[in-house]
């Protein structure tokens, strides 16, 4: 509860700072709209040449792309401002400030700064999902929507864990910044994981779990998921958090501050 209050306070302060530069809001809206619009045109062109992509129809692919866009917005808003060029903070010994504050260091390190304008992208993603649902022409049961929201929350957790894990590598290899590689790998989530051949599909399911991040939630909304897959996703999310905590505690032992 304390962390939630802290998180709300950080978000409110960041929002106030962002609202001071209103032209940036307009710019972010235009940029996100144009990027999402051209990506949707790409999806339409692909489906003008085929009926299925990895077993997914047009409206399913649109819902998947919408889910991907929502998670991209969440990543941009809550995680990226904290971990972008993280290795420079390690090299400069600037982690001291999160270690001495009276709140969990992992929370402050990975969620202590927000960029609220990124939520524009998440809103656009939600609109795309709604459009995908309307394209299908079918009535979607409410329970599917609830399962989708649950899996979306799990996907947000997995996204946070994987992004922070990639950043934490610099605690062992300070010169290695994998931000660009993560950004590139993230792009694979905009299409269903069933589209990729092996061994890429295995990597995108278990190493960088794009399957759990976008494919599984979108599948839950379009066709529903089995209780087993829902349980496996929840367990995956829980295990991911545990792994992150272990890696952070282990990495912290290697950190030498700039001042002591």
């Amino acid at each position: 509860m304390k962390l939630l209050r802290l998180s709300c306070a950080i978000f409110a302060m960041s929002l106030k700072a962002d609202l001071a530069h209103r032209s940036n809001i307009l710019f972010q809206v235009l940029l996100s709209l144009a990027a999402a619009g051209s990506s949707l045109i790409t999806v339409q062109i692909i489906f003008s040449r085929t009926d299925h992509l990895g077993g997914w129809t047009l409206h399913e692919a649109v819902i998947l792309f919408g889910t991907f866009t929502i998670l991209g917005g969440i990543l941009l808003t809550f995680v990226e401002p904290n971990v972008l060029w993280f290795h420079q903070r390690v090299i400069a010994g600037q982690l001291d400030e999160v270690l001495v504050k009276p709140a969990p260091s992992l929370f402050l390190l990975s969620l202590g700064r927000h960029a609220p304008l990124g939520l524009v992208q998440a809103v656009i993603g939600a609109v795309i999902v709604a459009w995908g649902i309307s394209l299908s022409g079918d009535a979607f049961p409410v329970w599917r929507g609830l399962v989708w929201l649950t899996l979306l929350a799990v996907a947000a957790v997995i996204t946070w864990v994987t992004r922070v894990l990639v950043a934490l590598i610099s605690l062992w290899v300070p010169g290695l910044a994998l931000d660009v590689v993560y950004d590139g790998a993230w792009q694979f989530g905009r299409y269903p994981v069933t589209m990729y051949r092996q061994p890429a599909r295995f990597v995108l399911t278990w190493v960088l779990p794009v399957a759990f991040i976008t494919t599984v939630p979108a599948r839950a909304l379009t066709r529903g998921v089995s209780p087993q897959l829902l349980g496996a996703s929840l367990a995956f999310g829980f295990v991911a958090i545990m792994i992150l905590r272990l890696v952070w505690m282990s990495g912290l032992r290697r950190y030498t501050s700039a001042t002591s």
Binding site: G175, L176, A177, L178, D179, V180, V181, D183, G184, A185, Q187, F188
Partner: peptide, 12 residues
């Protein structure tokens, strides 16, 4: 090392 990641990023 960073340049290698940049090139890999462009390959995606």
């Amino acid at each position: 090392g960073f340049l290698v990641t940049l090139v890999l990023g462009q390959c995606v």
